[in-house]
Design a protein around this nucleic acid. Sequence first.
DNA 1: TCTGGGGTCCTAGGACCC
DNA 2: TCTGGGGTCCTAGGACCC
Length: 422
Amino acid sequence: MFRVALVDCNSFYASCERVFNPRLLNRPVVVLSNNDGCVVALTKEAKALGIVRGVPAFQIRALIQRHGVHVLSSNYVLYGDMSQRVLDTLATFTPNLEVYSIDEAFLDLADFADRNLADYGRTIRATVARWTGLPVSVGIAETKTLAKLANHIAKCVKDTGGVFDLIAVPDREALLGKVPVQELWGVGPNIARRLQAAGVTTARALRDADDQWVRTQFGVTGLKTVHELRGISCLPLEECPPSRQSIAVSRSFGRPVTAPGDMREAVATYVTRAAEKLREERLAAGALTVHLTTNPFNDSPQYSNSATIELPVATDASAELIRQALDLLPRLWRDGYRYKKAGVLLTALVPAGEVQTGLFDGEDRAKVRRLSATLDRLNAKLGADTLRFGATGQRQGWRTKFAHRSPAYTTNWHDLPLVRAS
DNA sequence: TCTGGGGTCCTAGGACCC
DNA sequence: TCTGGGGTCCTAGGACCC
């Protein structure tokens, strides 16, 4: 019998900040997206003020002032490191787990079915809190969709203590009848609207919906959700993530870009980062797409475009990818626009060791490989971007802004928090 | 003034083939 | 008057997730 726990960190980014800055405890805290644009994480104290995830920062400026809300820029290095600590902790509880996102994982508890699973969940929660300082919620059920739902209840209902075992609930009918359909995993705003219009407003109503109707209205994805609600597992635990299909790097600019030179710097910078990701995962890219766009929220003239090049031989070399990307740019660039964002997308990914070589390939691949290895080694040792390509520019006035970024508490010796005895 | 980024899966429709 | 049927592949767009 399938038994699965979803362990999910509460307000993950904000909680990471709290671990190293106790002044944030019991206070409203928001963490902003790149460029300090939108709220992407917030504590329950911030939610109580009416702030919601996704709202632009400038729209809540007065609220922030009035209530002394603590505002932080995203610190992905910190969150990535804390995420790994949580996963290392969870791995001590079961060998079979699926890392679902930066702040959550599904744990296979099939082999623990003879235990009290809620007790086990409480042990997991207490251990993560002690070893990492982070609060988590645990939801337990027969399928992933139901575990998500159980987790939602663990988070929202106070007397659960952060752990909820749906299997042990005596009256599941009543419970599912109280869960709004839009809270379910796999039901987004669009599907929720259509379900409500059809009179399906609760998890229970969706579970009991007609299969044929669901299939024609919401496809196989919708039908899987319905079956999962009935306790029939359709979404297996993915312990070995399938190899990925694409690598993307895109950023909004700190200020509008109007000069081609700035755009070239930005695109070269994003390609560099994408190429680093490629090499970290020992992949090579067979195609590269560049896109750029103006600001859709402005009423200024709008323009966006993208172009793709298929590479003759798949590569992971920064220099070659930068050259290819910059060659695409003149096709995309139009004078007279205020560009807001650009990005690169690497696709047709293959393992770096299985690249199909080209008969007429002019590159000295062995030499390029040595260059990449040296580059990566130096930057790993001396800090990111210590050595970089001239095409990425010197002043980088377009760079994304992070005005409120916390220190790299766990990944930089100079930022190590100090505890003083007073 | 100021509105994120990175993914996946599914489906419909067109191109193309025999 | 009257113009097949079935299959694959690719792509764009929509939906979802965090």
